[in-house]
Nucleic acid binder design. Structure first.
Lengths: 120, 120
DNA sequence: CTGTATCCCGGGGGATACTG
DNA sequence: CAGTATCCCCCGGGATACAG
C-alpha cells in the first residue's frame, strides 16, 4: 500500500473507516441518548437506576446498550460494586470529559441559531 | 404561561421538543451525510452532480433528501438556474457557515482523542 | 438492582425505473 | 442535469419476560 498518501484524516473506528473526523465524533456521541448521557454524567457520577429515572422515556435495554458503547469507546467508566443487591456507578473518563467542550458548543450553537424556535 | 421556570433550554424543532440544545444540533447535522455535506459546501458552492461525485457511495435519493432537510433548516441555499438542462447550485447560508466552528471542533476532537486508532 | 434474551414492528435507506 | 416514485429489505429500537 501506499505510504505517505498517509491520511490527513483516515481514522478507523470500530472496524469502519472514516475519511473525516466529524463522522467519527458523530459515531461516538451521535447515538440517540449518548450526548445527553455524557451531559448528565459530566455533572455527577450516577447509578444505573438514577440514569433510568433521568431517561424514563427509554428502556433499560437501550440505556444499557448506549452505556456499553460509550464504555467501549472509552468515554465512560463502569464501576461495579461486588455486593448484593448489585450497585453500578457510571462516570466519565478523562476522554469522556474531554468532549464536554464540544457538546457545550453544540448546545450554544442551538441556543443562538435556533432561538427563534424557542417556545414561549 | 409560566413565568420564569421558563425553560433554560426547551427548543422546538420540526415539531419535536428538545430539552437540550445538543440534541437539536444533532438533529440538524447528525444525519448520515449532513456533516460531510456542510463540510464540503464550506469549501465551495457545488452543483448537484458535483456532490454526487463527492458522495458516490450514496444515492441521489438520499443526497436530495439530506440537502432538502438542510435547506429546510436554513443551513443550505439552493439556487436553481432556469435553464435546460437544469443547473442547481448548493451553497451555505450564514446559518450554515455559523456551524462550521462546531464541525471543526468535532473534527479536532476526533484527531486528538482517537489518534491511536489512526491506521498506519 | 442491574442487567440479558426474545419477539416484533416501523421506518431509514438502498436499487431501480421514470420525468421535466 | 436534477431530480421523483416505487418497491423492498434490514435493523434500530420498543415491549415484555427472564436472570444473577
Amino acid at each position: 500500500m501506499d505510504q505517505n498518501a498517509s491520511v490527513n484524516d483516515l481514522i478507523v473506528h470500530r472496524g469502519k473507516e472514516y475519511t473525516c473526523g466529524i463522522d467519527v465524533t458523530l459515531a461516538v456521541v451521535g447515538g440517540k441518548w449518548k450526548a445527553s448521557i455524557l451531559w448528565h454524567l459530566a455533572q455527577e457520577t450516577m447509578r444505573f437506576s438514577e440514569l433510568q429515572r433521568q431517561f424514563s422515556e427509554t428502556t433499560r435495554k437501550m440505556l444499557t446498550q448506549q452505556l456499553r458503547e460509550l464504555e467501549a469507546d472509552g468515554l465512560v467508566h463502569r464501576k461495579i460494586y461486588p455486593q448484593v443487591p448489585p450497585k453500578v456507578e457510571y462516570s466519565l473518563t478523562d476522554k469522556g470529559r474531554s468532549i464536554y467542550p464540544v457538546l457545550d458548543m453544540m448546545c450554544e450553537w442551538a441556543k443562538e441559531h435556533l432561538q427563534d424556535e424557542i417556545s414561549g
